[in-house]
């Protein structure tokens, strides 16, 4: 049992858990508000871009497609390093949390735009025509007829993507944002124990498991309808 005791003491040390609980709660709070800001920015911008794309202006659409492709093809950490370490050279100094929110918000917007757009293109053409025939303008048809249906189609893939990108707030630890992982790493080097890392992992499971379960519920509901 000696080995097991040592294992528990290394990874699940109660005294260390208790000592770092307040710091960890502060980290959880930072992770939650960062994620909320990223989700708000990403979904709003993604929805706006998808709507803009439905007007069919060639130049505008090309810009939107390039934006969405860049956001989906570039690793977020590359963008974070460029913004955090590169921009100060031009005299633009952004704080760590701001860089994280901007980069992850843009990345989420890129994915969200593609998902909303896929939803919009799946709405049957007859729906548009019917909307226009009742005397609604293009924008009115978009908002009142097409968008509600598109958004419903978009929800399951969107929740998956929101989950994946909210988790990336852990990248903030690389640029000194004191979210869960940063708190855990700092505590680990102070205590010389792996327990804070376990604590951090548990904190992430507590914060994000509800979202994972939500994706499962949506998946079931979606499967029922089809």
């Amino acid at each position: 049992m000696d080995g097991l005791d040592r294992f528990l003491n290394t990874f699940f040390n109660g005294a260390i858990f208790a000592r770092y609980l307040p710091d960890m709660l502060a980290g959880v709070w930072v992770t939650i508000w960062l994620a909320a800001a990223v989700i708000a920015l990403g979904l709003t911008l993604g929805l706006l871009l998808a709507c803009l794309r439905s007007y069919g202006n060639r130049v505008v659409n090309l810009c939107i497609i390039v934006f969405a492709d860049l956001g989906r093809a570039l690793p977020p950490l590359v963008l974070i390093l460029i913004m955090y370490f590169g921009l100060p050279g031009l005299g633009v100094r952004l704080s760590g949390p701001l860089v994280l929110i901007l980069v992850l918000g843009f990345v989420l917007a890129a994915f969200a735009e593609e998902i909303f757009w896929a939803g919009l293109t799946s709405v049957a053409r007859g729906q548009w025509e019917a909307g226009r025939a009742t005397g609604l303008g293009f924008t009115q048809t978009l908002i009142h007829v097409a968008l509600p249906q598109a958004i419903r189609l978009a929800i399951p893939p969107l929740v998956n993507r929101v989950l994946a990108i909210s988790k990336m707030t852990a990248l903030g630890s690389v640029i000194g944002v004191s979210e869960i992982l940063a708190v855990a790493s700092t505590a680990q080097s102070f205590t010389g124990s792996a327990a804070p890392l376990t604590m951090g992992a548990i904190a992430y499971v507590i914060v994000f498991l509800p979202l994972v379960i939500l994706t499962r519920i949506l998946e079931h509901r979606y499967a029922w309808k089809v």
Partner: peptide, 13 residues
Amino acid sequence: VLRAVPPLVLLIF
């Protein structure tokens, strides 16, 4: 659980 834990956290752990 693997989907709830960020990959970077798993890596550092």
